[in-house]
């Protein structure tokens, strides 16, 4: 089985102080850690598990600048066989649609029975590249997948809906799955695989191979700004005892018990 996983290198902003840079369109990155996007780590693991089960090859692809090769190498060390970087620097501002077209331009020439992507990137929050890519490649998709079982020619994909409900789909391959966090337990790399990965060549594809004029975007970033502060909570201050007494007063007064 030939499998493809699309991954993205993103700044870790969940627990960091995020500041807007002087262009107003990007963030200050020099104090941020960069890692593989969270749901992509689960997508990669799902791809590796499938490869281990059915044998075949796993190719990882990332649209990114040079640094993305570090992330691709991590994927190689964890179990991918080949890695491709699409040179983001060659294609200007990227939105989800443009990213999907770049991926399509490369993937259409590769054998693929199954494609895995994360369900959302924690930087731009678009959650659209996977589903768009499936459409551009003319293959069925299932998004927000939290379980996959393969039974002969049928893939049972379980999508996460609201309220703990799952949607059970029966699909045929080739298909694309956007993977939700928690579906599996992403693995560590072994030192032997790390050594192998360190020496592997990463294929780099840029504007010489992909005609940038054919690639359009649907949207452009106008500006970043700090979210307007809504009606914020009344912050209870003082010693712990004073805070506790305030809470006591609130629950009594409102009859919450």
């Amino acid at each position: 089985m030939d499998i493809i996983a699309c991954i993205k290198r993103v700044p870790q902003t969940a627990e960091a102080d995020v500041k807007i840079d002087s262009s107003g369109k990007d963030i200050v990155k020099d104090r941020l850690q960069f890692d593989m996007n969270e749901s992509d780590t689960y997508a990669l693991e799902e791809a590796i598990l499938l490869k281990e089960k059915f044998s075949g090859s796993l190719t990882v692809i990332s649209v990114g600048t040079f640094d993305a090769e570090d992330t691709l190498r991590i994927a190689l060390a964890k179990g991918a066989d080949n890695a491709i970087r699409i040179k983001a620097e060659d294609f200007g501002e990227l939105d989800g649609y443009k990213t999907a077209q770049l991926l399509k331009a490369v993937i259409k020439d590769l054998k693929h029975d199954a494609i895995f992507t994360g369900c959302i990137a924690t930087d731009d929050y678009y959650s659209q590249v996977g589903v768009t890519l499936a459409e551009l490649l003319g293959m069925p998709h299932a998004s927000l997948v939290t379980k996959i079982e393969i039974d002969g020619n049928t893939v049972h994909a379980y999508r996460e809906l609201e309220g703990g409900l799952l949607e059970h789909l029966a699909m045929s391959l080739p298909a694309l799955f956007t993977i939700q966090t928690g579906i599996n337990e992403p693995r560590y790399a072994s030192l032997i695989a790390i050594r192998r990965a360190a020496k592997k060549e990463i294929k780099v594809i840029g504007k010489e191979e992909i005609n940038a004029e054919d690639i359009v975007s649907f949207s452009s970033l106008e500006k970043l700004f700090t979210p307007p502060v809504g009606e914020r909570a009344e912050i209870l201050s003082g010693t712990l005892d004073e805070i506790g007494t305030r809470v006591q007063g609130i629950v009594k007064e409102k009859g919450l018990l």
């Binding site: 975007s217 949207s219 106008e222 979210p227």
Partner: peptide, 15 residues
């Protein structure tokens, strides 16, 4: 739109 783990908002113009 909300971006970077909800830390910032963005204005995006559609084509």
């Amino acid at each position: 739109r909300s971006v970077y783990d909800g830390k910032l908002d963005a204005h995006v113009l559609l084509k």
